[in-house]
Simulated scan of single mutants.
Amino acid sequence: MTESSTSIAALWVAQAKEGREAEVRELIARVVTPARHDEGNIDYEVHEDEARPGTFVVYERWVSREALRRHTESPWISELIPPLLELTTGNIEDELRFLRPIRPTR
C-alpha cells in the first residue's frame, strides 16, 4: 500500500483561554457536520476532557493524506482558524499529531 492510499488520522488538543470555554465549545461543534461531509472523511469527532473542562480533543480520520490536505485547505476551515486561535492557548502545530494505522502482518 502506498502512502497516498493509506488512511491517516489526526489528533488535536486545544485548551480554551480561561472564561472562553463556551465559545470554543460552540465554535468547534459547528465544524463537525461540515467536516464529516468533506470528501474522504471517515470519522470526525470532538470531545471535551471530563477531567479538564475547557480542554478539547478533535480526532479525525481520512482516506488519505491528500483528503486531509483538501479538508485543511477548504474555505470554511480558513474562516475557522483565526477566531479559534483567539480563543485558545498555544498554537495548532504544537498540539497536532498525525497518526498512521498499524495493522497486523497476518
Rank of each mutant, 00 (worst) to 15 (best):
F98E: 04
I8G: 10
A10N: 05
P101A: 03
E39A: 09
G40V: 03
K17F: 00
I42W: 01
V13T: 14
T72S: 15
V46A: 02
R25H: 13
L87F: 07
H37V: 01
A22W: 01
H71Y: 11
G19K: 10
E39W: 03
L99G: 10
P83Q: 09
L68P: 10
P82V: 09
W62G: 12
Q15H: 14
I102S: 12
S7C: 12
R69L: 12
W76H: 10
E50Y: 10
Y59Q: 10
R52H: 10
N91E: 08
W62R: 13
L84V: 01
D49Y: 01
E21M: 08
E3F: 08
S7E: 15
P104L: 15
N41R: 03
D94L: 13
R36S: 08
P82C: 11
P101L: 05
S74T: 13
L85Q: 13
G19Y: 10
L85C: 09
I81H: 09
Y59F: 11
A14N: 14
S7R: 15
A29C: 01
H37Y: 05
F98V: 02
R61G: 01
L96G: 11
A29I: 03
E86H: 11
I77V: 15
A67C: 06
E73H: 05
R100S: 12
D49G: 01
A35S: 15
W76C: 00
D43A: 05
P83M: 08
G90P: 00
G90Q: 03
R30I: 00
V24I: 12
E45H: 00
E48W: 04
I77C: 11
R61F: 02
E60T: 07
E26I: 00
D43F: 07
S64C: 03
I92M: 13
I42A: 03
T55H: 06
A67L: 06
I102K: 11
P53G: 04
L85P: 02
A10R: 07
I28G: 02
T55Q: 11
Y59S: 09
N91D: 08
G54S: 05
S4P: 02
I81P: 14
A22M: 08
G19E: 07
I77M: 15
S5Y: 03
I28R: 04
S74N: 10
G40I: 05
I8M: 15
T72M: 15
L27Y: 08
A10F: 12
H71N: 08
P82T: 08
R20V: 02
E45S: 00
R69G: 09
E26Q: 05
R36V: 04
N91L: 04
H37C: 09
V13Y: 06
I81E: 13
S64P: 07
F98W: 06
L84W: 02
Y44S: 00
V63T: 11
E18G: 05
E79W: 12
I28C: 08
V13E: 12
R100I: 09
R52N: 11
N41T: 09
V32D: 06
L85F: 05
E39M: 03
E95L: 09
P34C: 03
F56P: 04
